[in-house]
Design a protein around this nucleic acid. Sequence first.
DNA 1: CTGAAAGCGCTAACAT
DNA 2: ATGTTAGCGCTTTCAG
Lengths: 338, 338
Amino acid sequence: MTGIKDVARELEMSTATVSRALRGLPGVSDETRQRVQRTAKQLGYVPSPGAAGLASGRTRTVAVVVPFVTRWFFASVVQGAEEVLREGGYDLLLYNLAGSGAARHRVFEGGRLTKRVDAVLVLSLQPTDDELTRLTALGRPVTFVGADVPGWSTVRIDDEAAACTATGHLVELGHRRIAYVGGPGELDVTAPNAREAGYRGTLRSAGLAHDPSLEVDGGFTLPGGIDAGRRLLDRPDRPTAIFAASDEMAIGVLRAARELGLRVPHDVSVVGIDDHELAGFFDLTTVAQPVVEQGRLAARLVLDALAPGAAKGGWHPAQVILPTTLLARGSTGPPPTA
Amino acid sequence: MTGIKDVARELEMSTATVSRALRGLPGVSDETRQRVQRTAKQLGYVPSPGAAGLASGRTRTVAVVVPFVTRWFFASVVQGAEEVLREGGYDLLLYNLAGSGAARHRVFEGGRLTKRVDAVLVLSLQPTDDELTRLTALGRPVTFVGADVPGWSTVRIDDEAAACTATGHLVELGHRRIAYVGGPGELDVTAPNAREAGYRGTLRSAGLAHDPSLEVDGGFTLPGGIDAGRRLLDRPDRPTAIFAASDEMAIGVLRAARELGLRVPHDVSVVGIDDHELAGFFDLTTVAQPVVEQGRLAARLVLDALAPGAAKGGWHPAQVILPTTLLARGSTGPPPTA
DNA sequence: CTGAAAGCGCTAACAT
DNA sequence: ATGTTAGCGCTTTCAG
């Protein structure tokens, strides 16, 4: 393995100069830099991130912690983050919790991240106090996506507002009996509570009664949505509209409606949140949120915090809230004129 | 940051012993090991992978190269791999090509992987000769998932056989005019060719005419499948059955059929490959392949190759071919009795 | 602008 | 069973 030393020897200069030249640091004559780069390439020199990290304390690696890689939303955020990190010269270490609380504990506990990464990106998890303590102990920039963590860098949408938009859309169409499909999901993820709050708040301000039996758990999965839809729609006093806190659940509701022979939106309206890649396919009305973009932004925040001078130069955690848009498609309409 | 040295000093022993004790190496008295572990924990010692890697030449990190993280199939394989790697004490460095040939080139070229990972997992890419040369130069175990690369470790299904199963199912149902939706997709991925070969081979052995106009490109995406479906079904001499080389495309075809007012399977039968998470939802007949399992297996192969003694102890690249199963659901049936 | 030298934190012979 | 001693390959003062 040819190293920096070989390049230095070949050029009869010090490894310090080679190192500086290769990293584009100032204080190297243009000519020297040229020569170094040329011989480095010619000798097939490849830097050793491990050694560089050991010497500098920077690993040029960022950990990304995701609840489930297989879910479209998270995979998309990862994709956005990867894009930006890679471009910034950082590697991405993936920690997939796969819905397991044990895995979650393992990642945050016991310094699995210490001395390993320069920063951490946490997706959609509402951190516990203990986790926050450990993350603080890391002493590294951390950015949360999809969670509101006061004092920390976050990138998210206003989940409550998004839920208001969705519910409000139904209210405006004239619906008065509106159900909610949400639920906690498997890990302690942020979105559910805020979305439920938005739903309830909107009902209240519209002066609509709040019927707890119209709030059911869909587990944030498609099958869960089907189940929830069946339960809601297969009753005499069924709602005229359903707001599902995620598109996957909303699609499940659509399916349940079809099974029960109900026409959408004639018999029942359905609205979701996300603008999932399949939402258009199902002609689902939804409140769209930028997904890949949240990953990109979070990665950028982290890179900013890592940039030289950020520590001294007055860098502060940033809270970015991205806008959402109501995409009125074919799954919502006025209530049946009973 | 407390290091191995601090632990050694505290215990008044050498760092070598501490290192050995902590890594569970033989040659340490049980009592010493206990003491070391206790003080290490108590001092909040956390190992530095970078330093260990520098000294040992092993990074305990595996690179996983995926064409698209956002696609269900790849995300699932990654999930399986992550699971096994994490358990084996390895970190997973994610390289997402996001369909970009440039990104692909960047990863394999210029030693982005050298000195950085102990092994590489490559998903569904058919490596070029140049890439194989570079991977060989890495001098590290490499395992391919979903590709047939003679001489290298591979985990895959028999794509040709899977396509035969799918097409054969249609033939047995009595179809004689069977279309194929496939296509190259964005990167040079392996599956397409083999599946097309399986389709053609089955037609031939069944003595059915091969009509090139019945082979259309679906780009391995859902929208591509819709397009393809429209083109195939919106013609007077439309096929009575369609085999799509992936479930996502098959679902697109289903959609196209519905748009055109065709009933499935009464007017047209559709079969896919994968058993995508939504296949059941759409009642799609498909040839199921184990997905997460391919990731797990590939990771295990890589860990085996990395295990101490593998190099000397007669370790050979392994070719694992996993079985596929026809899942006959509601999207296939006998042809219309014209 | 360039060089010398001291590590970064750990592992791996080689001793004892 | 434990200690000693070199590094691993790079970055980073500190000199010049």
